[in-house]
Design a protein around this nucleic acid. Structure first.
Length: 649
RNA sequence: GGCCCCGUAGCUCAGUCAGGAAGAGCGCCGGCCUCCUAAGCCGGUGGUCGUGGGUUCGAAUCCCACCGGGGCCGCCA
């Protein structure tokens, strides 16, 4: 069974080069890594660069490329039709008849699943993503995470891996306790709006008021001590938080009044929050009822959002249950204590990550910069409670009971923590697990002139994002396709709007900080999901009009003579290759770029070449075949990106 | 202070891992709907690849220094 027709061509080229180097330059052939690249348009389908070989030999690259290409005459190729030496490169042209014949057999085997390209060794991969704090709505940063995680998961599935999508519900931390404290103070009201938005408001309000209390306390002390600079700094901070509180008041004045009233009667909110955290870790039923009740409300809001976005999870893993109540985290701590890398410092238990790095000389392997000292990690606070990363060590072990590889989709700001996590695994003797733990980092999303902050209740939610995009898409559909029934137009707008958002996040490298701009997300032209979706709808339309039954299983590629046809065909052949590369490198953006290229190629073809009214029946069939493959490739690419492929627009 | 990421066309970004042929989209200018959906197509415009050194026959890509933007260095997550 052949999954990747292009690979046959590539392998033949690779083989030829290896063979040529061995017979022409036996002294250097072992030193050279043969890497093949895509030549610029008009220079064939694969290129070999001769500069490295030439350097070893002390001759010109042209001499090498000529020597290699002249050997082609003695070689019997199946998938290569032409070998040309050009300015130090050997360019290889595909034998379309043979490669397309392979492609036909792949298509006949896989049908609509064309592109599926299993890795030589497949694994069970657990992808943890989103894991948004269950105390506020998913905002645009979370949207980026969710969209990336979803697409990565889909991509790995297309590479034959078994993928488990996990959401880690961080219900043990301090933030949850703050929100729960506020929620309880209000008498655990039933949400007056979407539940995650309601709790988000309560959380912002509670945490802002607590911040203000803290600042007032430190102001008093600063005044008593006469520290003027410090005092002024605190005053300006206090001012800022007071503005936040005024903002929050304006958003819901009546609830605000009720809350303030109750909050002021609490003597020491800080102590209550700490107590709540301790009670929850101890699984006190009352605390469990409160916190679980609130988290479940927020999660029900998350599920609504994710449902609309077409993003799903196989499992929601409660941190409390898996790590604390099960005793797993205590277990892990005991085992760590038995290593030489843990010590007590001011009553807290600390993991000396850097000593481990030094003892085992791990810096190179883990790509830790020279002379960089990995910070120590506090495992247990002096009050006996555990910290997030400590629990995460336990959670990671839990994950590896279920998977061979673990990918964490987490912001790059947690890079050090993720490194400490890996080091903790090594300290525990699980080096092989550490090697299979991947931090898929992504940069944060910024707003121009707006500082986003969950604690301040300042964020753009995923819900708003979808609402806006769908609204804009609806207006477009209404003007372009007024004849369609309203339900159809709505459904198209939903697919187009949400697709546009996803594409906007997926088409840039995850390590690029994104400055959020509506104009980018609401771009429906080239280099956008709607552009690709449109090409798909056009392809679908041709097939519908032609009558789907008439698509042939085999074609003669020599019928496809124009540049537009050949260009499209040659790109389509590469689809399985792109999936393999994107999956192995964890680069969904490669699929986004590829799909956009196919759409460009297809639109050009669409404009220049008639399909239904081709000159002959054979030609018509060949073109229908091409259109059908385009449709499959576009739809599957969009599927990998988590974007719907509408049949009309 | 130490470390990490980013800096490529007016704007948003590919290309940097493995040095060798600067590339999209938006914008701007001009053309194309008696013909399968114009969310389209065709042509044009536009770049000291942050700056300065170094290595090399050859640097956007590797090394060093610096500049600008962001992040991290918590008994937060």
């Amino acid at each position: 069974m052949i999954y990747d027709p292009f690979e046959a061509f590539r392998a033949e080229v690779h083989n030829f080069i290896r063979n040529s180097l061995e017979s022409l330059y036996p002294e250097v052939s072992s030193k050279v890594v043969i890497s093949l690249e895509d030549p610029p348009p008009g220079h064939g389908d694969l290129a070999f660069r001769c500069f490295e070989v030439a350097r070893h030999l002390g001759v010109s690259p042209e001499e090498v490329s000529k020597a290699i290409s002249s050997r082609a005459k003695e070689f019997t190729f199946r998938y290569v039709s032409k070998v040309v030496s050009e300015s130090g490169y050997v360019n290889f042209y595909m034998n379309l008849d043979e490669v397309v014949s392979l492609m036909c057999s792949t298509l006949n085997d896989l049908g609509e699943k064309f592109g599926f390209n299993p890795a030589p060794h497949t694994h069970t991969v657990l992808v943890e993503f989103l894991s948004a704090n269950p105390i506020h709505p998913i905002h645009i940063g979370g949207a980026r995470n969710a969209i990336l995680g979803d697409s990565l998961s889909r991509l790995l599935t297309w590479r034959g891996h078994k993928v488990l999508r996990h959401f880690y519900v961080d219900d043990v931390g301090r933030q949850v306790a703050i929100a729960a404290f506020g929620f309880n103070l209000l008498g655990r009201p039933s949400p007056w709006t979407k539940p995650d938005h309601a709790i988000g408001y309560i959380y912002a309000l509670t945490s802002s008021l607590i911040e203000v209390c803290r600042l007032k306390e430190s102001l008093k002390r600063a005044k008593a001590l006469g520290k003027d600079d410090y005092y002024r700094a605190k005053v300006s901070k206090l001012d800022e938080w007071m503005r936040v509180i005024i903002e929050l008041k304006e958003r819901n004045p009546s609830l605000f009044e009720v809350f303030i009233d109750k909050f002021e009667k609490v003597k020491d909110p800080e102590a209550e929050i700490r107590a709540l955290m301790k009670r929850y870790e101890a699984k006190d039923p009352e605390a469990v009822d409160l916190i679980r009740g609130m988290c479940n409300l927020v999660l029900s809001g998350f599920k609504q959002t994710l449902d609309r976005a077409g993003i799903y999870f196989d499992s929601f893993d409660w941190e409390s249950e898996i790590t604390v109540w099960s005793g797993l985290v205590i277990d892990v701590i005991r085992k760590l204590e038995a290593t030489p890398y843990v010590t007590y410092s001011d009553g807290a238990l600390v993991f000396m990550a850097n000593r481990l790095v030094r003892d085992f000389d791990l810096a190179d392997e883990l790509k830790i910069p020279k002379n960089y000292e990995v910070p120590s990690l506090t495992l247990i606070r002096s009050d006996g409670t555990t910290l997030y990363t400590t629990r995460d060590i336990a959670y990671t072990l839990w994950k590896f009971k279920r998977a061979d590889k673990v990918i964490n989709v987490i912001g790059v700001e947690q890079k050090i923590t993720q490194l400490q996590l890996k080091l903790a695994l090594i300290a525990l003797g699980y080096k092989s697990l550490a090697e299979n733990l991947v931090h898929f980092g992504y940069e944060l999303v910024n707003m121009p002139g707006y500082k986003m902050s969950s604690r301040r209740g300042r964020y753009i939610t995923f819900d708003e994002l979808m609402e806006e995009a769908v609204k804009k898409a609806k207006a477009e559909v209404d003007t372009r396709s007024p004849h369609l029934p309203i339900e159809v137009r709505r459904s198209i707008a939903e697919k187009v709007g949400i697709g546009a958002i996803k594409y906007a996040f997926l088409s840039v490298s995850s390590l690029k900080p994104v400055t959020f701009r509506w104009s980018k997300v609401l771009n429906f032209e080239r280099n956008s999901a709607p552009f690709i979706q449109y090409a798909h709808a056009r392809a679908f339309n041709i097939l519908t009009k032609a009558g789907v039954r008439s698509i042939p299983h085999e074609i003669n590629p020599s019928l496809l003579r124009t540049d537009a046809e050949r260009d499209l065909l040659v790109r389509l052949i590469r689809f399985p290759r792109i999936i393999a590369e994107a999956a192995d490198k964890l680069r969904p953006d490669l699929v986004a770029e590829y799909a956009n290229d196919i759409a460009i190629s297809f639109n050009s073809f669409y404009d220049k070449v008639p399909v239904i009214r081709s000159e002959s029946e054979d030609l018509r069939n060949a073109r229908l075949w091409l259109v059908n493959v385009t449709r499959i490739v576009l739809r599957n690419s969009l599927n990998i990106l988590g974007i719907a492929a509408p049949q009309r627009m």
